[in-house]
Simulated scan of single mutants.
Amino acid sequence: MWACAYVGAGYGGLFETVKPGNADQYTTDPRFTGTLSGHKLVPSRALCFTGYERCPDDHVCTFKEPNGRGAMTVHVPTTDPATRSHGTSYGAEAAPRSAWNRTKKHVCFYPQPTFTGTWDDPASLREFGAYVILRGDSTTIPAPFSGTFRSHELVNGTAECA
Rank of each mutant, 00 (worst) to 15 (best):
A3C: 15
G8D: 02
A9Q: 10
A9C: 04
G10P: 05
L14N: 07
N22P: 01
D24N: 13
T27C: 07
R31M: 11
T33A: 14
T35E: 11
L36M: 14
S37D: 09
H39A: 15
K40S: 07
V42P: 03
A46P: 00
L47T: 03
L47M: 14
T50K: 00
T50L: 04
Y52E: 05
R54Y: 03
C55E: 12
C55W: 13
P56T: 02
D57A: 15
D58G: 06
V60W: 01
F63P: 04
F63D: 09
F63T: 08
F63A: 12
K64S: 15
E65A: 08
G70M: 12
G70P: 06
A71V: 13
A71Q: 13
M72C: 07
V76E: 11
V76L: 14
P77C: 10
T78Y: 06
T78V: 13
T78I: 10
T78L: 13
T79L: 15
A82R: 15
S85Q: 15
S85D: 09
T88G: 01
S89D: 00
Y90G: 01
G91K: 06
P96T: 08
S98N: 01
W100C: 11
N101W: 06
T103R: 03
T103W: 11
H106E: 01
H106I: 03
H106N: 08
V107C: 07
Y110V: 01
T114E: 05
T114Y: 03
T114M: 04
G117N: 00
T118I: 07
D120N: 11
A123H: 10
A123F: 08
L125C: 02
L125K: 09
G129F: 00
G129P: 01
G129S: 04
G129Q: 03
A130V: 02
I133G: 05
L134M: 12
T140V: 10
S146W: 02
F149V: 04
R150M: 05
T158L: 10
A159G: 04
E160G: 06
E160F: 00
A162W: 00
